[in-house]
Each structure stands twice: as structure tokens, then as C-alpha cells.
């Protein structure tokens, strides 16, 4: 168990270096939120009009 903890720790440190290249500042957080907002606007446009009917009608036969 101790060995695994150790490896996990090493692994975490290694990835931390990668994360440093793209610092998670509040600016990037705001950008992400803005992107998600744009995406939601788009989804409101393309989502099937009658969700209930669309979901009900989606019936498949089992496969494989």
C-alpha cells in the first residue's frame, strides 16, 4: 500500500509540471464560463424542439 501511495505522489508531481504551462487563473475560469454560456445558447437553438416526444420515440432494438 505504501508503495502505491508513493507512486501516486510521484505521478501527481509529474502532472503538476504539465499543469504549470496553463496556469488556472480566474481569467481562464471566466473564459471557460463564457464558452460554456455560448455553448448553452447554441444548444437552446439546436436541441430537438419537443424533447419529451423525441426521447419517447427514440426506441432501438437490442443489438450485437
Amino acid at each position: 500500500m505504501a508503495e502505491r501511495e508513493l507512486k501516486k505522489k510521484q505521478a501527481t508531481e509529474r502532472t503538476a509540471e504539465v499543469v504549470d504551462e496553463v496556469p488556472a487563473t480566474s481569467a481562464t475560469g471566466d473564459k471557460l464560463k463564457a464558452e460554456l454560456d455560448d455553448l448553452l445558447d447554441e444548444i437552446d437553438e439546436v436541441l430537438e424542439d419537443n424533447a419529451e416526444e423525441f426521447v419517447r420515440n427514440y426506441v432501438q432494438k437490442g443489438g450485437e
Binding site: 439546436v46 436541441l47 430537438e48 424533447a51 419529451e52 423525441f54 426521447v55
Partner: peptide, 11 residues
């Protein structure tokens, strides 16, 4: 439980 959630899943 809202069908829009399932619709998003499918779409």
C-alpha cells in the same frame, strides 16, 4: 427527470 436532460444525453 426532465426530458430535456435525456434529450441532451441522446443528442
Amino acid at each position: 427527470g426532465d426530458p430535456r436532460m435525456t434529450a441532451i444525453d441522446l443528442q
